[in-house]
Computed example of a mutant assay.
Amino acid sequence: MTQASSRRDFLKQTAAFSTGLAVSGWAGSLLANTALNQPLYKISLAQWSLHRALRGGKLDNLDFAKVTKEEFGINAVEYVNQFFKDKAEDKKYLAEMNQRAADVGVKNVLIMIDGEGALGDPDAKKRTQAIENHHKWVTAAKTLGCHSIRVNARSNGSYEEQQKLAADGLSRLTEFAKKYGINVLVENHGGLSSNGAWLAGVMKMVNMPECGTLPDFGNFVLDRKTGEQYDRYKGVKELMPYAKAVSAKTHDFDKDGNEINTDYVKMMKIVLDAGYHGYVGIEYEGKKLDEYAGIKASKKLLLKVREELTPEETADPCCGQEGYYVPQRRRMFRRRLFRR
């Protein structure tokens, strides 16, 4: 054997060995991270779903995590600041919230913030005050182990003026929040914020990875007086590229358990197509079913849709090993961005 041929053989063997390692590493990573081990999306419970019980004194904020786990079998919660408004800086109270959630194995996901001023207020002093009012909730979210606070982008003025004002307030708040590892999320929550194109434009202006959206399936009323609405599917599609949380709004259900206002299969396809596989928070606001029954119906629907949208798993022909499975969902995996 010549020296040249020996070198060629050595290079071929080395290349084959390296390729084998790459393939096995890719397969191992795929098995570890695809939906073979993880669901298409996780389910959390938004505290607003129980706002009547909380406001009526039938449920205490400190018991919310326990009720979520024991009554509904859900292990992640989204708080609303209205139900512990004066406790944002009460370390003892926040520690108790943490302990009670930990005791039942419940994860604190985020806090929804209302009543702290307009982040897009045309008055510069009021806008600054609103930003500062949110600071205590950023630190509270950090203490509770949440990944985000949800805020509103309320403003006044023309379409473009409101975009600039909201972007200013959000940018400044996000600069503060990112020091604590907390995201600032904006929900479509009335007025121009319920216009998907407007809010997506605000996100582009802010242009910070820590500032995102919390698309709500039902909050697309542009004018409560006239009843004018923005197309909810179009709106969610426009907001999903920036989403770090999702709100599954429900009101009423038909005899088959489907939400009568939103086609959940169509809506969840939009969510998944954007590469989102994080928490989808149940936010029941109906009146025909009581709050507990409405939450259970919402969870049942989300589970049914998740099962329907999850592709069947088949044996991978490349492996030749019995019982070695790789989901068919490869294209989805490649573009999947696992977000909290």
Rank of each mutant, 00 (worst) to 15 (best):
M97L: 14
A167K: 03
A177S: 14
V184C: 09
N188A: 01
Y284M: 14
L59G: 10
I111D: 08
M1T: 11
A95L: 02
G196R: 02
K178Y: 07
H251P: 06
A248E: 07
L40A: 11
L301C: 13
V246E: 03
T14E: 01
S298N: 12
T226L: 07
A245W: 00
A53R: 13
P241G: 02
C146E: 05
A118G: 07
G294R: 15
Q162M: 13
A197Y: 01
A130G: 14
N152E: 12
D256C: 04
V305R: 10
N156F: 02
N33H: 12
F10C: 05
K66P: 03
K92S: 06
G181N: 08
L45M: 04
E160S: 13
L192N: 03
A88G: 09
R172T: 01
N152L: 12
N33A: 04
S29K: 12
T174L: 02
G212P: 01
R55H: 14
N183D: 10
D231N: 13
D223T: 03
F72W: 13
G25N: 05
D252H: 11
H251Y: 15
L59H: 02
L170Q: 03
K69Y: 02
P122K: 08
E116F: 13
N261W: 04
P209T: 13
E187T: 03
Q229C: 10
I131S: 06
L199H: 10
F217W: 13
G320Y: 06
R336F: 14
S171F: 00
L31Q: 07
P39S: 11
N183L: 08
M203L: 02
K300A: 13
L36D: 02
G169V: 07
G56H: 03
L144N: 03
F217L: 12
D86L: 07
W198Y: 08
L50S: 10
E187D: 06
E78G: 08
G320Q: 01
A15L: 13
H135I: 00
K42V: 09
S247A: 08
K304T: 14
F338M: 12
K92Q: 15
Q47W: 05
L62G: 05
E96S: 11
Y180K: 02
K204S: 05
S44E: 08
T34S: 15
E70L: 03
V23E: 07
T226D: 09
G25T: 08
Q47T: 04
N188F: 08
V206P: 00
K136R: 13
I113W: 06
V326Y: 03
L309E: 05
N195L: 04
Y79E: 04
L119G: 12
N152S: 02
I131A: 09
G275F: 07
R150Q: 11
G57W: 06
F176W: 05
R172D: 09
G25P: 00
L222T: 09
G218A: 15
D60H: 07
Q129N: 15
K204Q: 06
A65Q: 10
